[in-house]
Design a protein around this nucleic acid. Structure first.
Ligand SMILES: [Mn+2]
Ligand SMILES: [Mn+2]
Ligand SMILES: [Zn+2]
Ligand SMILES: [Zn+2]
Lengths: 126, 126
DNA sequence: CCTCTTATTGCAACTAGGTTGCAAATATAG
DNA sequence: CTATATTTGCAACCTAGTTGCAATAAGAGG
């Protein structure tokens, strides 16, 4: 499941994602593991998870990097090209399962489409 | 046309956008005006232009802030909700005139959709 | 034109996310 | 149990962007 060396830190970071399908910003993850590992280690472990196809990454509304679990990816193929949602009130981020068709643009070759929807989440709508 | 005080710096920054419809990153703009004004000034002028509805802003692929001219906006209403394209090879950014319909998401209120298309621009396709 | 008020600017210091080089620690193959 | 390669901590660094404050300069009104 977890390739390369299965260190204490690797296990701790993975557990967070294993427990739920929530997306986490690097800032949260560094904060969360403060005391048990260095921030550099968090960054490096996340990098490795991404290369291995365990996590995918995207940018939230202020350019912050977010990570979420992949479901059918490997180091060879990332198929997590889905839109993401971020709540303008609580800041929470979610992976969306809806399909977005990539628009065609004349004279351009489009390889990827990043879509970030902004608004209010279910909890903040009340 | 240009509200507030029309300083030397304000004129210089505006000229860049007035000349063409190119999008510019703040990094480029600061570099471009190095020698004639401080970077803080560039940031503040861009902020003002945005508030006044002259420029709109969005994030490029590395979370860098980009600015481009608005065409029918005012301080009251920004209607520049269009997708943007960034070339993976030369880094160039373009505003796209295509329409993207904002997807609906159950139990969420979507206010805005940010879309960044990545690929190769016309010049880099050769 | 001159004067006064207020918006704008420069500067230096700061914040925050993210990266790097290197020596020390540790997982794991054999 | 070793030997080796990977991973980690640390401290220093980088870059985009922000802030407080004193100095400067638009431009409105006289
Ligand atoms: Mn996702
Ligand atoms: Mn645009
Ligand atoms: Zn919310
Ligand atoms: Zn290009």
């Amino acid at each position: 499941m977890i390739s390369s060396r299965q260190t204490q830190s690797v296990r701790l970071v993975w557990e967070v994602f294993d427990r739920s399908d929530t997306a986490y910003s690097v800032v949260e993850l560094v904060q969360m593991h403060k005391g048990s590992m260095n921030k550099t280690t968090v960054y490096r472990i996340l990098d490795r998870f991404e290369k291995e196809g365990k996590l995918h990454t995207f940018l939230g509304k202020n350019g912050l990097k977010w990570y979420a679990k992949c479901h059918n990816c490997s180091s060879k193929k990332h198929i997590d090209i889905h839109p993401h949602f971020q709540c303008n009130e609580c800041g929470k981020v979610e992976c969306l399962t809806i399909d977005v068709k990539i628009p065609k643009v004349a004279k351009h070759h489009i390889e990827q489409a990043n879509m970030l929807l902004l608004g209010q989440c279910d909890e903040c709508l009340i």
